[in-house]
Amino acid sequence: MTTHYLVLSALLFTIGGIGVLVRRNAIVVFMSVELMLNSCNLAFVAFSRMHGNLDGQLMAFFVMVVAAAEVVVGLAIIVTIFRTRRSASVDDANLLKY
């Protein structure tokens, strides 16, 4: 049974990872990162059930808290750069290079 959850978790993680790499909008990139974190949560909970201990569920709660804190920080940064440049595209942020 655990395998099914793990396959789903790996799929979500991959979708998230590809999303980060191919999407242009910083908000969507960030959403993809959140998807990766949530796929980790699914894996933690599935392993927790498999091993019969609660460490994994505990970890999932901490990940949720951290993800919430990350949203606060991330949206603040993305909104600031959007207000400056009128664009949230990660391709437009190209002043720092080489």
Partner: peptide
């Protein structure tokens, strides 16, 4: 430049912590 640095650091840092977390999940498993 400063805001751009923050966006880049944030997105890449969050991306890498996603990898770290999945690694932790696998080791826990």
């Amino acid at each position: 430049l400063s805001q751009e640095a923050a966006v880049k650091y944030f997105l890449l840092g969050a991306f890498s912590s996603g990898f770290l977390l999945y690694g932790i999940a696998m080791l826990y498993g």
